[in-house]
């Protein structure tokens, strides 16, 4: 197999690499670009831990062949602003953290595209990101507090 000569934009900066032709975008990000924030949870597009933005749309990077990425723009968790991660931290969105990068990328995308919620609830919107730790309440309240900073921590339906 001959290497693939791959150029694309990663978090706003151009990169040029030689990768295996059968590499996935996930592999390129993690093992060639050092962006290990993007996680592999299942390798089958079910868990969403490897979510990145490809030309501005969320995708599971485990299902994207690297050869389709040439010339395109990829944004990962490493490029997400503190305005997103801060509120998520306060509501307890991260526990073990393995699903967190995917949730952070989805939250960032939603913040930039709030119109998506016109026909979907937050619970539907986040259903592509499996989390085994939180039971999702702190994820949902975290995303809500990023979208509306007035939203108090603790959020949806919980009391203590």
């Amino acid at each position: 197999m001959t290497d693939l000569d791959l150029s694309f934009t990663l978090n706003g900066k151009p990169v040029r690499l030689h990768v295996r032709p059968d590499a996935r975008l996930l592999d390129v990000l993690r093992y060639d670009c050092g962006c290990t924030g993007t996680k592999e949870g299942c390798g089958e597009g079910e868990c969403g831990a490897c979510t990145v933005l490809l030309d501005g749309l969320p995708v599971n990077s485990c299902l994207v062949p690297a050869f389709q990425v040439a010339g395109r723009s990829v944004e990962t968790v490493e490029a997400v602003a503190p305005e997103v991660t801060g509120p998520l931290n306060r509501t307890g969105t991260a526990q073990c953290g393995a699903c967190s990068p995917g949730i952070v990328v989805m939250t960032r995308w939603l913040r930039e595209h709030p119109e998506v919620l016109q026909d979907a609830t937050l619970r539907q919107f986040m259903s592509g990101n499996l989390c085994r730790c939180t039971g999702y309440d702190s994820v949902i309240s975290g995303v809500a507090s990023v979208l509306d900073p007035k939203e108090t921590a603790g959020g949806e339906g919980t009391s203590a």
Partner: peptide
């Protein structure tokens, strides 16, 4: 105290190092 978890921000930023993230 309702203190945010000490390891939370690193995990949310993708900076926490899991075993497959280590480069050797």
């Amino acid at each position: 105290e309702d203190r945010p978890r000490v390891d939370g921000l690193d995990k949310l930023r993708g900076a926490a190092a899991y075993v497959d993230d280590l480069r050797v």
